[in-house]
Amino acid sequence: MRRAALAIVSTVAALVMLLSFKTHSVSSSRPAAIGAANTGDGSATGGDSGSTAPPSTATSTHAGSTKGGSSSAAKTYTGDSTDTQWGPVQVQITVQSGKITKVAVVDYPHGNPRDDEINSYALPQLVQATMSAQSAHIDTVSGATVTSDGYLGSLQSALDRAGL
């Protein structure tokens, strides 16, 4: 069981890494502001490890241009739910002043003790990898071929929408 959890964790971390470092090269092809504005950092982080309820995301896709200079207010973007071999996974990121300030998995496979382990361990890695990408000034990333399956699509779509 633990092995399975670790496998998931490493997959999560790998995909997040690829995505997070790719934020500079990934498109904002479908700009869509989804969900409510995040009010702050401290109080919101508690939800990362516990809540299993997917938020009701009202998908409002507008094909215009995204923010130019009005990005100082925190905004939350939710990716499409993507089926992985473990079940549906959905990722949400919060962006403030053009930087990712928070990454959360809002939906993930339930009904198994390993879920708790994933959430207590993978999420900090998600955030850490994303944050370090933000400070690295990397334009794009090279690595062994990325597949478009699974979790990748979910976080990627969130990042695409954030337009980073």
Partner: peptide, 28 residues
């Protein structure tokens, strides 16, 4: 992925992502 393209004011950047060949292509 929709084909809409976003162009930001400054610096000039147009980004686009396409899923194809079992992988993801990013254009910047």
């Amino acid at each position: 992925v929709s084909r809409a393209v976003t162009t930001l004011e400054a610096p000039p950047r147009t980004r686009y992502v396409e899923h194809c060949m079992g992988t993801v292509f990013s254009v910047d």
